[in-house]
Simulated scan of single mutants.
Amino acid sequence: MRSVSYLGFGGVVAVAMIAASSAVGASAETFVNAPQPRVTTPAAGKTETAIFAGGCFWGVEGVFDHVKGVVSATSGYAGGTTGSPSYEQVSTGTTGHAEAVRVVFDPAKVSYAELLRIYFSVVADPTMLNAQGPDHGTQYRTALFPQSAGQERVARAYLQQLTAAHTFARPIVTRIEHTSRFYPAEGYHQNFMAKNPTYPYIVINDAPKVDALRRMMPNLYRS
């Protein structure tokens, strides 16, 4: 599991080295080319907001930053009961929050259904319960936080579609949760992948996800 501390006036990040056993497990990650969603919704405005939890928010944010039509991706916390939580609090696994990413997107360029396909294809393994890669705990669970009735309808339909198609060898445990509250993470977590492309955790766990997006969905990828 990663461990984060920060020093100095600029919030410079110093992260503990990843245990060798965790690195080996993470490097074996495979990706699934999930099917096109059969249910979608028409664009409801110039922008929409969606929230996804898929393990460490560095990688989730990093992938969505490379999706055409995404206006912004912000790392943060969602799904818990603690108000204005800190990284240290969420890391205890006692706040109910998951590391999550708020995605603002242009639905005329990329639909919520397409974001779901990206999520299930390259962002997260939906068959892992309260864990992703080397990270374990409820704060690393996979969860969808629909921000409208339309999004929830699309999310539920896609989960049913993936299950019926046996897209994954094991049962999907990704939850649909309801909250509109999102707490942005500390500044040193934002754009972490872009700012630290050679950091070992990023190289092993997250950079392969961006590469998979580029290879598998070139029409949705932006450099």
Results as ranks from 00 to 15, higher is better:
residue 1 M to A: 13
residue 154 V to F: 04
residue 128 M to R: 14
residue 26 A to L: 04
residue 109 K to D: 00
residue 220 L to F: 09
residue 214 R to S: 08
residue 88 E to G: 09
residue 98 A to T: 02
residue 170 R to T: 08
residue 5 S to P: 07
residue 193 M to G: 09
residue 161 Q to G: 12
residue 98 A to Y: 04
residue 47 T to C: 07
residue 8 G to C: 02
residue 107 P to G: 11
residue 172 I to L: 12
residue 22 S to T: 11
residue 18 I to Q: 09
residue 39 V to P: 03
residue 217 M to V: 08
residue 29 E to I: 07
residue 170 R to P: 06
residue 66 H to K: 11
residue 182 F to V: 04
residue 45 G to H: 11
residue 36 Q to W: 11
residue 51 I to C: 11
residue 23 A to T: 05
residue 222 R to I: 05
residue 212 A to R: 02
residue 119 Y to N: 02
residue 59 G to P: 05
residue 210 V to M: 00
residue 159 L to F: 10
residue 199 Y to L: 09
residue 56 C to L: 01
residue 117 R to D: 04
residue 80 G to L: 05
residue 56 C to V: 01
residue 21 S to N: 14
residue 49 T to S: 09
residue 5 S to L: 13
residue 215 R to G: 10
residue 54 G to H: 01
residue 191 N to R: 13
residue 138 T to P: 10
residue 4 V to D: 05
residue 205 N to Q: 10
residue 48 E to P: 03
residue 164 A to Y: 01
residue 93 G to M: 10
residue 18 I to Y: 02
residue 180 S to K: 14
residue 110 V to G: 04
residue 196 N to H: 14
residue 104 V to M: 05
residue 192 F to R: 03
residue 93 G to L: 04
residue 190 Q to G: 12
residue 192 F to T: 02
residue 187 G to W: 03
residue 63 V to I: 09
residue 103 V to R: 08
residue 69 G to D: 12
residue 17 M to K: 15
